[in-house]
Design a protein around this nucleic acid. Structure first.
Lengths: 238, 238
DNA sequence: TTTCTTAGCGTATTTTTTACGCTAAGTTTG
DNA sequence: CAAACTTAGCGTAAAAAATACGCTAAGAAA
């Protein structure tokens, strides 16, 4: 019934540099670009494999990571790719089912130098036209899920430095969701939420009025979350 | 690196009988209860396998089906269960990674007689204490996702008959989310949304004022959905 | 006929969202 | 060094949505 199936993970790693959303890609043997990934081993479960791939590529252990979905078209890996996989991993596989994850990381100097070492690239998401196998489909699905999740949970802060300005937060939303944001109403929302707190510090060296730095207080968020359990629970347009 | 892995699907099939949320279970060889599922074949992708399982168990082709997540603990299938799987499917598997789905069906006479034939049971979700392997974990995760999805998209109608009363809809939300609902404000919301339309028919033989029947108009929903693209987009408590 | 139960309408209050005017604090430009 | 430019950040008013809750209506059951 089943011949040699393998299970792999592929990770869509998102980063934000203040201007646009980027995604980590790998150039395999000078061929086409692909997402970082790996076959799973006998001893590990799939989330562990995803964390392993991420640690290897970014050097980070605490990364926001979420399962996207499974990609299982029997023809998703062509003969040539299959040959590469069998050679690289030393297996005899006829089919690879992959579990896709998306990850969010803060783009700082440390991670940039680590990825550079691994011959990985941060590419602007909008400029990615094609990827190996079905990796473009995976990226598209990751983008859709990221948009959705960013509107429903406070994960934007996983992409921003610990201290950020309200403008940076708004710019991130603009970049990911492609929406216009009214500066004044956005501020009100952010400041009023109760868990985004001013640090007292200010921007320096910007060609306009320097903005205050804020931090996301996870602890307070949890508290507010419990309070807010509102019964206006149904909102079908989301 | 990888020995004989298999990939399976397991389906959490939800139904609503007007009183409580039910889940379809199978009694395997007079042993403990489990979710309907199957190993995938070489030729099919995973969604196809899920639809196949569902068609077999319910007789239905058009079922609401959504991927939940992957369960991949190397020890999730014990030796005894592994033995059963290898015997039943005629394979030599050392590990089964499963992709869980949840499905929503309308409990009518047709489906009830079909499942009865297949020796499957509709069990009240709250009364399910333990299941084979990690199937209880799968059920729990399905419940969490169902709650979430029911608040964000109009999937409740997949569980209700085509024509339903506003009370039935409210009862479903009460049963799944465990919330109290104010009859009057709920009606306002439903009637005002623009895509839940009265059929002109009324309940018969109920021991109180008969309620009007409504239908969910998918077409109008899509239209409203586009209009509603509101910029009050961020709501982190969801 | 009374009682019981749910249907279904209406209204007033509060909360949230939206639109938008305006000043403040810096840098850059002429 | 003043004017221009840019983003920060406060405030207010209007609109929309959510909530609380009183009340009548229509049927079956007692």
């Amino acid at each position: 019934m089943q011949t040699n199936h393998s299970v792999s993970v592929d990770c869509v790693v998102f980063g934000f540099d203040g201007r646009s959303l980027k995604c980590l890609l790998i150039k395999r043997d000078g061929q086409d670009l692909k997402l970082p990934g790996s076959l799973i081993t006998d001893q590990e479960d799939i989330p562990s494999a995803a964390y392993r791939v991420l640690a290897e590529m970014t050097g980070l252990r605490d990364v926001f990571l979420k399962e996207l979905s499974v990609f299982s078209d029997p023809a998703r890996v062509g003969d040539k790719d299959l040959e590469w996989i069998n050679h690289f991993y030393g297996v005899q596989t006829t089919r690879v089912v992959t579990v896709a994850y998306y990850a969010l990381v803060k783009l700082d100097n440390k991670i940039m130098s680590h990825t550079l070492e691994k011959e990985a690239f941060w590419k602007e998401v909008v400029s990615i036209t094609s990827l190996a196998m079905d990796h473009k489909d995976i990226l598209n699905k990751a983008l859709a899920m990221l948009s959705r999740d960013m509107t429903h949970s406070p994960i934007a802060f996983e992409l921003l430095p610990r201290k950020f300005t309200i403008r940076e937060l708004a710019d991130l939303y603009k970049a990911v969701l492609g929406v216009e944001i009214d500066n004044r109403n956005f501020r009100k929302k952010i400041i009023g939420c109760g868990y985004i707190l001013p640090t007292g510090e200010k921007e320096k060296g910007v060609a306009h009025k320097p903005a205050a730095y804020y931090v996301f207080d996870k602890h307070r968020y949890r508290k507010e979350e419990k309070k807010t359990r509102k019964l206006n629970f149904i909102n079908w347009n989301e």
